[in-house]
């Protein structure tokens, strides 16, 4: 038996209006695999926030979701500007999102805090000028 299944997504930074589609795909897949609604919600919200972040700040990136029996691992990777002060970025309400996306309701400074809230484990690796990789785990 295959122990896990991987889903790889290229998040298109040019196409703001399609941001969030990987999250919808993962949601459907998790449902078909019989995960509980609570787990599905946590994973899809964390994914969604991550996707939006990559599109707003980093001109896109990649998302890898590995689904195991007991956990779901999400790795979001981009080659964007990086986060200079992670502690500050993690504060609720802190945002560097540009004005044009705020009009759509984004940029409330809740992206990273929500990702942390909805996952059991979250690790941010970021280098200014090189990019950011965020790894999250949701235990079932």
């Amino acid at each position: 038996m295959t122990e896990h299944v991987n889903f790889h997504f290229e998040i298109d930074g040019e196409n703001f209006t399609s941001a969030g589609e990987a999250s919808v795909r993962i949601k459907k897949n998790l449902r078909e695999m019989g995960f509980s609604p609570e787990i599905i919600r946590r994973v899809s919200v964390a994914m969604y926030e991550g996707e939006i972040n990559m599109v707003i700040h980093a001109n896109g990136g990649t998302a890898d979701v590995d689904i195991y029996c007991d956990r779901i691992e999400i790795v979001l990777s981009d080659r964007g500007p990086g986060i200079s002060n992670i502690e500050l970025a993690m504060q609720e309400g802190y945002s560097t999102a540009p004005e044009n996306v705020r009009s759509l309701g984004f940029g409330a400074g809740m992206g990273l805090p929500n990702m942390k809230r909805y996952t059991d484990d979250m690790k941010i690796e970021s280098k200014v000028g090189e990019g950011t990789t965020i790894s999250m785990t949701v235990w079932v």
Binding site: T2, V5, M33, G34, Y68, C69
Partner: peptide, 21 residues
């Protein structure tokens, strides 16, 4: 409705999902 589930057993469901992909 559970008809969209691949299997009641999660291990089997993951195996099937990997096969689908």
């Amino acid at each position: 409705d559970a008809s969209s589930k691949l299997s009641e057993d999660r291990m089997t469901a993951i195996t099937k999902m990997a096969a689908i992909e």
